[in-house]
Design a binder for these strands. Structure first.
Lengths: 196, 196
DNA sequence: TGCACTATGGCATACTATGCGCCATAATTA
DNA sequence: TAATTATGGCGCATAGTATGCCATAGTGCA
């Protein structure tokens, strides 16, 4: 579990920090391994002793944050969707995701604006998670795969916009907007399915 | 306007066809210029006499289709949004986009699954168009920029899913789903703004 | 503290892909 | 038919990735 050798720890940490710093300055795709090692003040050769790829380094960087995100999505507030009495104004839950992203905004900036190869596994996971949580419970006339895809990618779009606009709006406000634009229509599909 | 030399026409046509064929087989980013020229049976050197880039070739391929798409978005059915009496079932307009994509599915498969650098200009144009058509007319409490972003990218997501699933559902059905998941909640925001 | 271990740095090298200069050749236009 | 021009194929330069080799310096453990 532990990194035994201090040098390895130091090297990996430097490389990870360098990648984040560079990714905030320029397109992820434009960054060369040479630049990363220069920034980290690490030998070019050494990079390949720890990572096979630029992508592998990025994945490692994002790994812990992705794990947090998983837990964030884990507890499924089913009532959120199927209780018709809940009003958008009462739902602060929608802001949780925005709080989390705000706390790790540097990393999410990198994640959400990187190549499709990077974000796609996360997206696929989120979709699968959403389907596992709600798909079997409710029969909707709209294919659940469509709903899951729409939900996840619309949330990502909203997060991207928010980060692009320097998170000027509060997480609560964004949570409310996400409810009205994304969750509410899905909820209505659920309610419609239940009423049959 | 006309291509004077027959050879140029032949060369460009071959290269364009080769790119589409390859893009349907593998990731756009993985395709090399060498592969394109091999497939087109055109000298490698000749490629650069017509295009500076792989992207430039792709843009030229997609150009005419993008122009059609522009016109498709041009006539703004404002009633679509602000007439509260219109029901989702009556709105076949939403299917127009899906019809268009179905007719050019090969090209849209390439477009919608290519790099962000390719699709982003189109996306930006669609967002701007949408804002120009409706943004000044209606004051909404949700920033119009969010709405425009959400609308466009959610439609793209829906199209992607549809193409991924070999367009098994009819354009009409997809149009209805897009209305319920995307247009309807936006419409409600509009109606809410009007009632004040 | 000192020894065995191993991560690192720096060098050379191979490979892949892009991009262009040059010139003979073939196709096209007028 | 003659002048023009696109093409093909050659070589070459460049950039980035990826690996081998070996001396050196840092590390963990006895």
């Amino acid at each position: 579990m532990e990194q035994i050798d201090r040098r390895v720890r130091r090297t990996k940490k430097s490389l990870e920090e360098a990648l984040i710093a560079l990714a905030l300055e320029k397109e992820y795709g434009e960054i060369t391994i040479q630049e990363i090692t220069d920034r980290a003040d690490i030998g070019y050769r050494t990079f390949f002793r720890h990572y096979s790829d630029k992508d592998e380094l990025l994945k490692e960087v994002l790994n812990s944050t992705m794990l947090e995100l998983r837990e964030l999505m884990a507890p499924p507030p089913l009532e959120y969707f199927i209780d018709p009495n809940i009003d958008a104004a009462d739902l602060t839950d929608g802001a949780i995701l925005f709080w989390h992203v705000q706390e790790n905004s540097d990393l999410y900036r990198v994640l959400l604006f990187s190549d499709r190869t990077i974000i796609q596994p996360l997206e696929a996971f989120a979709i699968q998670e959403f389907k596992a949580n709600y798909g079997s419970l409710l029969e909707t006339d709209i294919p659940f795969d469509i709903i899951a895809n729409h939900m996840v990618s619309a949330m990502i779009t909203l997060l991207r916009w928010w980060l692009d606009n320097d998170m000027a709006l509060s997480p609560e406000v964004m949570g409310e907007y996400s409810f009205r634009l994304i969750a509410q229509p899905i909820r209505e599909t659920f309610l419609q399915a239940l009423s049959k």
